[in-house]
Nucleic acid binder design. Structure first.
Lengths: 203, 203, 203, 203
DNA sequence: TATGAATGAGCCTTCATTCAT
DNA sequence: CATGAATGAAGGCTCATTCAT
């Protein structure tokens, strides 16, 4: 059966009610991350993931209905990591500080596991997976913070989207180049974002 | 020595000397573009490309020594289209006008075949293909124009790289979202790039 | 390291730990023998072998990393059969009896599955497989026995090599012609080997 | 059309009546020899032969109805070379001298183009080609000479066959090992053949 | 007749997925 | 529930052969 059924589930097959299951699921997802990082797309296959996770391929399919579900779970995990860090920005009083925190989060996120981040960016845009993942959540959070910083901006959602795109572009490129100087990257990123706002702020 | 070198060739197998051949090669590359656009990575296989091109699989392999070579050819074709447009900027007297022309070229490029552009950006960064494509040429051209515009900038290559990354990020995102308003995108992109320069210009 | 080493493995992919697996492996090797015998080189392909073995092509590749590994396994099986029989010669006290036993073993070996033996002799000399198989083991065993029989011979390794070559030549030819009279062949082979020794013995 | 028709012709498509054609045919056969020697079986394909011969693949098929026909032609050429050399033995008065000449011819033949000789030995025994080639001619000539040397031998054809097999076995092995000392090989070969005759001569 | 572009059957191999144990 | 042997669709690629020019 190679015809991908449109009703295919991307959610884990079972809500892992027991602690044991939860552990297994987590170990599989982490194994997926590791395989993707060390072997790239070419080597990202379910058998390799199961092997690395130390479970049987049968078990993997017990928890994930298919390869895509596993990919989605991995993307969700990474997105959540990012989202949780970004959410801290919401607790900051100063809007500018919040925006700066966001920038720092983006840089941190990317430079922690750059290869993984890049690969997931790619997977994320696969038509079959589109929308299934919580990318928009990130943009929404981003937008919330941004809009607090630029209350007088016309079209704040557009601006938020652009800032997000700029961030992603610069940060991906930095990962690609193998940059490791976080502070330098952060400084340039701030220049880009605040620069954008200063020019586009009052259309 | 019959051992096939592991360093696969990415160059077309034969220079299509006859008009007939040239047509065939072009039709295969265009078919590759179409398949990639309509089927995505999953459906991008040599048999599908040959079928879409209306040639046999054997013919495809007569002109391209492998799947990667075909991908590289496609990337080169798209890159060339972009490069040729960008090169016009070099003929402009005003540095600012040149930079603005560049921005327009990037926008035009991306919005013509957005899906294709995004997919190729991805393929381009595949480890196996790295360096084989003319990506650096683009960045080099970009850098040339940028450096004329910002003679007093410290680290002009870094700035050029950042501008390139910003452009790519915004323009990819726009394509992803399905934006069609070229002028609006161009305006925002200018805001981002000139904004970046105004903030990062005098470190 | 995802780059697959060009030095393909010739060893079975997994040691068949379970009885079920062992059977499968054996049936695949036997199927390979049969296909080679009945279809010759032309028809010796992995799909045919899998079909004849009554397993899926996937199973074949679960146990053998490639076609060559399967060939090597077959050669090893046949070589082992021969080797084990020849090894009996080492237990004989009389050097002459040992040599005669060897001759008998060679004749037996060849006439049991003549076509297979000939085909494997050929495959064995394929550049890619050279050294991977236990051919030298056979010659070494042969040499051991021979040297016990001809202690005063100058260049005993050369003599052993020649005797091996004579044996192989005569026995292959007999198989090719479809001879079935083992005793007659054995008599002539003895004439050849002892004749060689009587003439070349005291250079 | 992959089904090999049993009526397939192995003879050149046209009797090359013109000198030009004869040259072309010869150059193709020589190219076949060279490809087989330098690339082995793996690289022995019609396109490679045509390329090496400096003719188009179409021309090759003009002169040979298929790949097998080309192989047969090559085997015939090599066989003829051998046969012509061996035939000189018939002119010698002494039977022993004739036999010795034969031995020398075999050694020369093998050591001139050892790889080619081995490869052709293999091709020769392919079921599809069996009988099409003139191997038996060689054995017949061999038998004629041998029988002159051993008039009192019982079963002279058997003896001739054995001598042929011994010769082929030793000479192939020598080629395989890369031996270059013709005289040494010849001496050992004589020991083998005359040794065989001395032992098997008077059953 | 020569050419070489084109053809496509068929081979090797991978990997997502299933299911008997 | 876990296991991992088994499955087979599908994809990359080669090469003998044909045929329009």
């Amino acid at each position: 059966m190679s015809e991908r059924s449109p009703q295919k589930q991307y959610r884990p097959r079972k809500a892992p009610s027991q602690a044991r299951s939860e552990e297994t699921v987590a170990s599989i997802v982490e194994a997926a991350a590791q395989v993707l990082e060390s072997e790239g797309f070419e080597g990202f296959n379910t058998n390799a993931v199961a092997r690395r996770a130390g479970v049987s391929i049968g078990s993997l399919y017990q928890y994930f209905p298919g390869k895509d579900a596993l990919t989605v779970a991995l993307i969700r995990r990474e997105t959540k990591r990012f989202h949780d860090d970004m959410a801290v920005a919401l607790t900051l009083r100063s809007a500018k500080a919040a925006l700066e925190y966001l920038i720092g989060a983006a840089v941190r996120q990317q430079l922690q596991r750059p290869v993984l981040a890049k690969l997931l960016d790619m997977e994320e845009s696969r038509p079959g997976l589109a929308g299934e993942v919580g990318k928009l959540d990130l943009e929404a959070l981003f937008a919330t913070v941004v809009q607090r910083a630029i209350p007088k901006h016309t079209r704040p959602e557009v601006a938020a989207g652009d800032l997000f795109a700029i961030t992603r572009g610069m940060v991906d490129a930095a990962g690609q180049r193998g940059e490791t100087d976080l502070e330098d990257l952060e400084r340039r990123l701030k220049a880009a974002l605040f620069g954008y706002l200063s020019k586009a702020g009052a259309d």
